[in-house]
């Protein structure tokens, strides 16, 4: 891989929340123009990883490079310039609840450009058309279903024509039709706009269909990585458990607890 292929690189990243370590020596690269999936069991820090990439959080040690720049060195204006080139889809859409669908999508344009009202209208309707919701422009967020809200948020994420789109658990809580729509949009937008996409998900089936490359994160490190077909043949027990959705394995079914006999009977029988 040449340097120009790499859009994002995490180098020896350590991060803890309080006393609980989340990442230890995490190394990971995201290639330009591809859909990269970040997978892993719940609570492994997938969303935290996105927050490190966007500098909503800073690592305890190690570096995060975006387009070759160490983002820890960015001042606030450089950071905001970087974020203008990124679009992020939050788990619940995170639409601004006091604005209509149209105004939500227009929000970044009004904040960062001096486009006229007519042009803003056209751009917003085009983006809504791309996610199939041009007809919902006049609705309020409270009138949308979960899947629709996420599509509106997606239209808002692409309205500034970002170079990188980040999806945080885009399939959670959606019905199969909405899941299929979102998966199709992820692939379509990536290819049509020529951008780079990062998708955090634990939905192995859906993500397997759209991702070019996948990382499985577990125990604070990259447990496995590769093309979807490679991951399915991964020998690691943990990766197999995750990919096949097995209830028990290296990720135990039971949370750590005192000895069962001791807890129920009071003392261990001889």
């Amino acid at each position: 891989m040449t340097l120009s292929d790499t859009l994002i690189e995490l180098r020896d990243v350590d991060f803890s929340r309080g006393d609980r370590p989340i990442f230890r020596d995490l190394n990971l690269t995201i290639r330009s123009g591809e859909v990269t999936a970040i997978m892993g069991p719940s609570g492994t820090g997938k969303t935290t990883l996105l927050q490190l990439i966007t500098r909503q959080l800073s690592p305890d040690s190690g570096q995060v490079f975006v387009a070759g720049d160490d983002i820890a060195r960015y001042g606030i204006s450089e950071l905001y310039r970087m974020r203008q080139r990124m679009g992020m889809l939050f788990q619940n859409g995170a639409l601004l609840t006091d604005m209509s669908v149209f105004e939500n999508v227009a929000f970044p344009l009004r904040e960062h450009t001096k486009l006229g009202e007519r042009l803003i209208r056209n751009v917003v309707l085009l983006k809504l058309q791309a996610v199939g919701l041009r007809g919902a422009a006049g609705l309020m967020p409270s009138e949308l279903s979960g899947g629709m809200a996420r599509r509106v948020a997606l239209a808002r994420a692409i309205v500034m024509d970002p170079a990188l789109l980040i999806y945080d658990e885009p399939f959670v809580g959606l019905d199969p039709i909405s899941m299929g729509v979102i998966a199709k949009l992820i692939r379509q937008l990536n290819d049509a706009l020529g951008i780079t996409s990062i998708v955090v998900s634990h939905d192995v089936k859906e993500i397997g269909e759209v991702a070019d490359y996948s990382y499985v994160i577990a125990d604070g490190k990259v447990a496995a990585s590769g093309r979807p077909a490679q991951l399915r043949n991964e020998p690691s027990e943990l990766v197999r458990q995750f990919m096949l959705g097995l209830a028990d394995g290296p990720v135990a079914f039971h949370y750590d607890a005192p000895d069962i006999e001791e807890q129920f009977i009071g003392s261990k029988p001889d």
Partner: peptide, 11 residues
């Protein structure tokens, strides 16, 4: 509901 984070991400 992540609206503040979304604003930060929209610069």
């Amino acid at each position: 509901t992540d609206q503040l984070s979304a604003m930060e991400m929209m610069a």
